[in-house]
Design a protein around this nucleic acid. Structure first.
Length: 796
DNA sequence: GAGTTTGAAACT
DNA sequence: CAGTTTCAAACTC
C-alpha cells in the first residue's frame, strides 16, 4: 500500500490535483506507502487547454489501456478533506454519482503486483508563484505498458481552472466503477480512472489575478527505470508559452515504446528561463527497485514549510562502489573548505536560491556540476565521503557554509548525513547515508559547520538507539545507465520536515542509508544578519565518538534556552559572539565551545576554537569529557514530574547571592525554576505554584545561612581579636561575654525557631510579606533572648 | 565602556 | 570532595 497525500498550499488556487501516485513492486505482504505533498499549484485557464492537448496526445499514445489491477488486489484512494474551501469545487463524477474531492487528497494504492521488477512514473508539476512543485514517482510492475503508465498518471490528474471548472486531464471510460470516494472513503484504482472532467459547481472564480497565472508550469515525467521498457514523458505547459509546450519522451535505455509524438526537451534551466519553472520545492521521487527484499514504505509527509529545503539523494545501484560525495563544482563561486585530512572532500553549497538540493550520487557525474537554476550538489562515484572533514563552500551572494562529514562508527546501520541549509527559514534536513568502503559499511554524517544563519542540532538516529523508530524505506533503484537521471531519489524537504525526530528513511539500496530527520525545533536560523552578526559559525564541534551528538538535541540547552529567550518572534536564534580572552575558547567558559560551535565573528582573543586548531580543539574536548562525560550534554533536560514534562537543570545551580533571579543563574537564564538539583541559597526562582511555599523555606534557609555566617563571623572576629586582644570569656565580674552565648547549639536552636515560624506561616497560608515579617520577628525574638540570657548571665 | 559582581568551570 | 582560583558573562554605574 502506498499513500499519497496531496496538499494544496494555503492560499493557492489549486487547480490540478496531484499526481501522486506510487506503487511498488510488492509481494502480497509488502507494502509501500507514500505521502506526497501537493501544494500551491496554480494553473491558468490556458493550462487546461494545454493539458487538454496533452491529454489528447497522451490519449493517442495510450492504447486504450488502463492500468488494471488484479481483482483480488485492493487499490485504495483515500480522500482526506482537509481543506474544503479549496476543494469544494472539485467534483468527481461517474454517471449519476458525484463526489466532492477535497483539496487535500490522500491516495492510497495497494496494488498486488507479483512482479519482481518495477517501473516508475515520475510526475513533475512544479507550480509558479511560490507554489509547490512535485515530482511524483509511480512504481509499478514491469509488465505495465507505457500506455498503462500514461493512463495511470493521467488518471490522477485533476485540474480546476481559475474560473472554477474542473479539468480532468484524462478522459476515462464511463463504464467503470463508481467512485466511492468520500471524505475519507476509498476508491479503487478503477475508480480513479473514472474521474472525469466536470464543471465546477460554483464556477465563479473568475477574478483571479492574471499575474497569478503566470509561470504556471506543469510537467509530468513518466519514467521507466527499466531501460528495456522504460521511457520518459515530460509534459510542460505554460500559459505564457503555449507554443512552447513541450512533450518529451525520453527513452532511458532501449525503450520498447512506440512514441509517435514529436519529442521536445525542456530542461529545468530552460523552464526557468521561460518562466515556467519557479525555483520551488523539493520534488518527490521514489525510485523503484529492481530487487526489493523488504517491506517498502514510501512515506512523504505533507509539508508545512513554505519553502522547504531541497534534498536529493541519488542512490547508485552499483552497490559495490562506496558512496561518494563529489566536491563542489570548481566554479568560481565555490570556495574550497578547510579540510582537515584533505584526502576526501565533500561539499555543501549555499545556493543562490532558497531551494537547495544536495545530491549524493554515485554515478559518474561530472564533478561539480551545479545548475544555477537548480542548484544541486552532486557527489559522484569517484569520491568517497571523508569523515571528520570540514568543507567550506560559498556561493556568490550567500554566506559561507561549512559542512563537516562526521563518521559515526557506532551507529550500526543508522547513518546520518546532515546537510546545512542557507539562511532562509527553510527546514534543515538531516539525511543519513551509508557508504560502503571495502565492503564494510561506514556511516557518514554531513554536518553544517558554519552556516552563519542557523544552528544545527544533530540528533542521533533513533533507529540505532531503539527499535521504535519509524523507518521509511525507499526502494532502491538499479541503475542501468550511469547517467540516468531516473535513479534520482529525491526526498522532499517538505516531507522530511514532517517526519518526526529520528524517523528514518531507509533505502533498499545499500548505498543509501537511513535518513534521520531533524525536527524543526532543532533548527534555528538566523535571517537578520544586519541585526546580528551574520555568518556566525554554528558548527558541530564534536563528532559522536563520544556519543554526544547522538542523543543531544543540544549540546548546551541552557545556552540554547538563552538564545530562545533572545529569539525574535520568528524563532530565529541570534547567537552572541564570545569574548573569551584567556581560555582560547577551548574551555567550557566559552559559550561557543560549550555549544559545540566554532567561533566565528567573535570577539575572542587567541581563539583556538576554529578549523585551524582542530587538533588542539579535539584535545580540549577530550579533556572536558574526561572531567565531565556529560560536559557537552544538554544541561537542561526533561524530568518526569507528576506525569508532566518539566524542563529542569540536570545539574542544578549553586547561586548564593543572586537569589536565582538574575541571569547569573543558569536556571533562571533558561527560564526554568530551580529544582531539587539546585544547591542555591535563598532561591527565589521557583514556580508560581510553589513560590509561596518555597520562598518561605528559602527565606528560613537564608536566615539560617545568614545566622550561621554571623556566628561564624563572630567566631572569626573572636579569633582575630584573640590575636591582639582576647577578651576574657568571663568578664571581670565573672560574667560570660555575650558572644560566648552564641554557641552552635544556640544558633541551631535559633534556626529551628525560624524554620518553625516559617512552617507555621505556611500552614496558616500567610502571604509572603506577612510570613517574612513573622520570621524576622521571630529572629528578633531569638536575638533578644540571647541578649537577655547574656545579661542574666552577666548579672548573676 | 570601565569596573564590579556573579557563579560555573577549572584547579588544587 | 571541598575549598580555591580562574574565567567570562551579567550587571552596574
Amino acid at each position: 500500500m502506498f499513500t499519497m497525500s496531496l496538499n494544496k498550499n494555503q492560499g493557492s488556487r489549486t487547480v490540478v490535483e496531484p499526481v501522486a501516485l506510487g506503487s511498488q513492486t510488492l509481494s502480497d505482504t509488502e507494502l509501500s506507502s507514500l505521502t506526497l505533498t501537493h501544494s500551491g499549484e496554480q494553473y491558468a485557464a490556458n493550462d487546461y487547454e494545454t493539458l487538454a492537448n496533452i491529454e489528447a496526445e497522451l490519449e493517442c499514445m495510450n492504447a486504450e489501456e488502463v492500468m488494471t489491477t488484479e481483482e483480488e488486489n485492493s487499490t485504495i484512494i483515500e480522500v482526506n478533506n482537509e481543506n474544503d474551501a479549496l476543494l469544494s469545487d472539485v467534483v468527481l463524477t461517474d454517471g449519476q454519482q458525484q463526489e466532492r474531492v477535497p483539496s487535500t487528497t490522500s491516495v492510497q494504492i495497494k496494488p498486488n503486483v507479483s512482479h519482481t521488477q518495477s517501473q516508475s512514473i515520475m510526475i513533475v508539476s512544479p507550480a509558479a508563484g511560490g507554489g509547490a512543485s512535485q515530482i511524483l514517482k509511480i512504481s509499478h510492475p514491469a509488465s505495465a505498458s507505457a500506455n498503462q503508465l500514461q493512463s495511470l498518471a493521467q488518471s490522477l490528474i485533476t485540474g480546476k481552472s481559475p474560473d472554477g471548472n474542473i479539468v480532468q486531464i484524462r478522459s476515462t471510460p464511463s463504464n467503470k466503477q463508481n467512485i466511492a470516494a468520500k471524505t475519507s472513503g476509498n476508491i479503487t484504482l478503477g475508480n480513479v480512472q473514472n474521474v472525469k472532467t466536470v464543471q465546477s459547481v460554483s464556477g465563479k472564480r473568475t477574478s483571479h489575478n492574471v499575474q497569478q497565472n503566470r509561470n504556471v508550469y506543469t510537467k509530468m515525467i513518466l519514467t521507466n527505470t527499466q531501460p528495456q521498457t522504460g521511457q520518459q514523458v515530460l509534459i510542460a505547459s505554460s500559459p505564457e508559452n503555449q507554443q512552447g509546450q513541450t512533450i518529451k519522451f525520453l527513452s532511458s535505455g532501449s525503450s520498447n515504446l512506440n512514441m509517435n509524438s514529436p519529442t521536445k526537451t525542456i530542461t529545468f534551466a530552460q523552464a526557468q528561463q521561460m518562466g515556467l519553472l519557479p525555483s520551488n520545492k523539493v520534488q518527490h521521487i521514489l525510485p523503484s527497485s529492481q530487487k526489493q527484499t523488504g517491506i517498502i514504505v514510501n512515506k512523504l509527509v505533507q509539508s508545512t514549510s513554505a519553502q522547504p529545503a531541497k534534498l536529493t539523494i541519488v542512490p547508485n545501484s552499483a552497490v559495490k562502489s562506496p558512496t561518494k560525495i563529489l566536491p563542489a563544482p570548481a566554479t568560481g563561486s565555490t570556495k574550497s573548505g578547510n579540510s582537515q585530512t584533505g584526502s576526501l572532500s565533500s561539499t555543501s553549497k549555499v545556493m543562490h536560491q532558497n531551494p537547495q538540493k544536495v545530491i549524493i550520487r554515485q554515478s559518474s557525474l561530472k564533478s561539480g556540476v551545479v545548475h544555477n537554476n537548480n542548484p544541486i550538489i552532486r557527489i559522484p562515484a569517484n569520491q568517497t565521503i571523508g569523515t571528520n572533514q570540514v568543507h567550506q563552500l560559498q556561493v556568490p551572494g550567500r554566506q559561507v557554509q561549512y559542512v563537516r562529514l562526521v563518521s559515526t562508527p557506532s551507529s550500526g546501520t543508522s547513518n546520518v548525513v546532515t546537510v546545512g541549509k542557507t539562511k532562509t527559514p527553510t527546514a534543515l534536513q538531516t539525511v543519513g547515508v551509508t557508504q560502503k568502503i571495502s565492503g564494510q559499511q561506514q556511516i557518514v554524517k554531513v554536518v553544517p559547520l558554519n552556516t552563519g544563519s542557523q544552528t544545527l542540532r544533530t540528533v542521533a538516529p533513533k533507529s540505532a538507539l531503539s527499535g521504535n523508530s519509524q523507518r521509511l524505506i525507499i526502494p532502491a533503484t538499479t541503475q542501468i545507465g550511469n547517467q540516468s537521471k531516473n535513479n534520482t531519489v529525491t526526498i522532499p524537504a517538505s516531507a522530511l520536515s514532517q517526519l518526526t525526530s529520528g524517523q528514518a528513511v531507509i533505502s533498499t539500496n545499500s548505498n543509501v542509508g537511513n535518513i534521520v530527520v531533524l525536527p524543526a525545533q532543532y533548527l534555528q536560523q538566523q535571517t537578520d544578519d544586519s541585526k546580528h552578526k551574520s555568518q556566525q559559525s554554528t558548527p558541530t564541534l564534536l563528532n559522536n565518538s563520544q556519543g554526544l551528538i547522538g542523543n543531544s538535541s543540544s549540546l548546551s540547552e541552557s545556552k540554547m534556552s538563552r538564545s530562545f529567550n533572545n529569539s525574535e518572534t520568528n524563532g530565529i536564534r541570534p547567537r552572541k559572539p564570545c569574548n573569551c580572552t584567556k581560555s582560547q575558547c577551548l574551555k567550557l567558559y566559552c559559550d561557543c565551545f560549550a555549544n559545540g560551535e566554532f567561533c566565528h565573528m567573535c570577539n575572542c582573543n587567541n581563539c583556538s576554537n576554529n578549523l585551524g586548531n582542530e587538533e588542539e580543539r579535539q584535545r580540549a574536548i577530550k579533556s572536558c569529557l574526561e572531567r565531565n562525560p556529560n560536559a557537552f550534554r544538554p544541561k537542561i533536560g526533561k524530568g518526569r514530574d507528576t506525569g508532566e514534562d518539566i524542563r529542569r537543570h540536570n545539574k542544578g545551580c549553586n547561586c548564593k547571592r543572586s537569589g536565582c533571579l538574575k541571569n547569573y543563574c543558569e536556571c533562571y537564564e533558561a527560564k526554568i525554576p530551580c529544582s531539587e538539583n539546585c544547591k542555591c541559597v535563598g532561591c527565589r526562582n521557583v514556580e508560581e505554584s510553589t513560590l509561596h511555599k518555597k520562598s518561605l523555606k528559602d527565606l528560613a534557609e537564608a536566615v539560617e545561612v545568614r545566622t550561621a555566617q554571623l556566628s561564624l563571623n563572630k567566631v572569626k572576629m573572636q579569633q582575630m581579636s584573640d590575636a591582639t586582644f582576647r577578651p576574657p570569656a568571663i568578664s571581670n565580674t565573672g560574667a560570660r561575654q555575650p558572644f560566648n552565648f552564641l554557641t552552635d547549639k544556640v544558633v541551631e536552636m535559633t534556626c529551628q525557631c525560624l524554620m518553625a515560624q516559617a512552617e507555621e506561616a505556611e500552614r496558616n497560608m500567610f502571604d509572603d510579606e506577612t510570613s517574612e515579617k513573622l520570621i524576622i520577628e521571630e529572629f528578633g525574638r531569638c536575638l533578644k533572648e540571647i541578649i537577655e540570657s547574656a545579661h542574666k548571665a552577666e548579672a548573676t
